[in-house]
Design a protein around this nucleic acid. Structure first.
Lengths: 210, 210, 210, 210
DNA sequence: CTATAAGCGAGACGGTACGTCCCGTCTTAGA
DNA sequence: TCTAAGACGGGACGTACCGTCTCGCTTATAG
């Protein structure tokens, strides 16, 4: 979650087309990296609740102000630290079978979330989001949106192929697929892994009715 | 909440052995009530993040230590304050139609969670549970367990009546029903209400496949 | 320092003339002793500042109320625990030489106060007396008064024998003898022992002038 | 008080080695002053026992941490607040008569200590010193040391002039002069004023012997 | 020879203050 | 000019004891 102009910044950085030396802001890449690395390390070590902005700054060898200059709060830093790894290797399979495709997409997510550190970090972010609507918004943008639209694509392909009902309520279907995964992450009442995701997909597609 | 349980347990255990061994000066019902009431009021007014143990104590006219004597943390107090209202009027309908029954059960939950104050309070508790495993455990016990077993009952009736597949994975089915509801509560990307719950039940039963 | 009627109680107990069975109060000697012993032990172990009424009660196996029933505060208990040992073996020598007599009296005090535990306990009581005038009063009565009057006796004998000036300001003389001893106890800037007391007496008698 | 000393010490030590190593964002003079003023005011109003670190912070309009950052405890703050006024106008008279000189020095002290507020404040510090050796050390340094060395100077002059015995035990003589004054401050068994101090000096010089 | 009122242990209670942690802002010296 | 370092006002934390209170048990007179 970048400060305010996150989207723009990301876009321009990604595009790399216009070096735009005219931009007089000179965010130090070194310290940007150091902060994100420190945040990720501390999360690994202490878990989301156990870290503070102060600790991140100390670990990164950076002044606290340098963090507050670019991010509004702890959650934002953590979010940025995890955004890439949570979404970068997002598969968009196209095997011709909607169950397989969805299984791959959800299975990858369940695997990532089930692996302790990333999962706990994202759970911590959702926790923070309950208090801070700004965090909630960013979380939906960064962590949720891309997967939901990917899923929507898969579902639409399924409809087109006749595998899925044409009158499908897409939003509802997507909630049915992701809800149980986050539910297990947050409640921890049962394991969260690829097998669960695949079984879930199967059930959602065929229904529980006889 | 643990306090009560433990007290009762101790009492009954002792009474089996030596009815005379008295806990003299046992917990004051007056202040127990006052604390829970204060907690509930403050929650209503400020939301979960806006209250502190100090504020609860002040509102209840109670020493802080009296809270810490009986509850390990803020979350526990709030949980006890909400446990009753969250679960007491838990319906266990038996209309002969599994969809109707589930719709009733989940519809009531969605309505409660969708109504701002209780929903936000429980979301706050889940947030706390991400940090404190003790809170997580209690939350599962108090808030989750009873609904899941009620649901299990309904599903088994449905299987017996032939409405549902006999080889159903009950745990998975229950996660499919509750996951999306909590997901919407926590992510707030879409409204959470009775209509959503009923549509969800319908979809889970018939599946999304064609 | 007994509760309120300390003097009366002490007197009647000491006089032992009227068993007065009419007094329906039945203070348990066992717990009275246990409390004083516990207080003395804890003082030895932790020092005056490190103990609490709660700790004394726990060590003595006694309810807190039982302490507050008979003493108004921690200081009173400690004072009673030390009153005897601080004053019981108070010598009243009469060698015919006022320097020797005073040296004996003050030397014994300096020795007692210089021995860590008792000295620190009494220093703790003086500290408490700075806050609580009731403690101050009792301390003067129990710890200070008897020594001052003993000293007065010795000084008067000295005057009668012509060893001391007949126009002596007794109060001032007594302050000159005891002041430096308590001063060293409380400030701890120099050792407090019998040698110091004896040198002090010598100097006070002959003066520092040439 | 330690804070200052330590800072200065650190500074000078560092400066000897590397003049450039800066403590950036050093201690705020404004709040340093505000805290000492607040402490002094509260002392005046409530007495030593009646004030708390919390109250000092509130009065000074300062966070509690800002106090704990620079002083280890309440006693240290109070000590610094009084150190100046207790020692700044320390007279070092030189009239040619040791009795007059000592009378002036001790008379001024007795007057200050006898005037309620300062005396009670210092008595409170001595009380605290009985519990906390660090406070004791500082008290000796700040409050006791300078007077003792001033007195030593006067006594040595007296010896040189032949007014006092050449074999005088200086330490003992100083204890004889100050002991009775602090004794009266702490025990409060008799008034503490200039007259007492002067009579004391007279007696210490000529002795009580005939 | 009760019975009854006290003393008693235990410890809950309303409070006060403690000393710590971290927040997010502000200030400063030095690169 | 920007950054590291970290001081600042503030708020909540969880703990320690204070002195008071209530409870049921025990016990030694008083009736």
């Amino acid at each position: 979650m970048a400060p305010d102009d996150s989207c723009d910044a990301t876009q321009s950085e990604l595009s790399e087309l216009s070096p735009k030396s005219a931009d007089c802001r000179r965010r130090s890449d070194r310290c940007h990296r150091a902060i994100l690395t420190a945040a990720a390390e501390l999360l690994e070590e202490k878990g989301y609740g156990g870290i503070s902005v102060e600790a991140i700054a100390a670990r990164a060898g950076v002044g606290k102000q340098t963090i507050y200059r670019w991010w509004p709060c702890k959650a934002s830093v953590v979010m940025e630290a995890y955004a890439e790894r949570a979404t970068q290797n997002l598969p968009l399979p196209d095997t011709g079978c909607v169950k397989t495709d969805l299984g791959e997409l959800l299975g990858q997510l369940a695997t990532v979330l089930g692996s302790t550190s990333t999962g706990r970090a994202l759970a911590g972010l959702i926790a923070e989001a309950q208090t801070d609507p700004h965090v909630a918004q960013e979380f939906r943008n960064q962590m949720i949106g891309c997967r939901r639209s990917a899923t929507q694509t898969l579902l639409q392909r399924g409809i087109e192929r006749g595998e899925l009902r044409p009158d499908l309520d897409l939003e509802l279907a997507i909630d049915s697929l992701y809800g149980p995964i986050w539910y297990r992450l947050l409640l921890q009442h049962a394991p969260l892994n690829r097998e669960f995701a695949i079984a879930l997909v199967e059930q959602v597609v065929v229904g529980i009715g006889s």
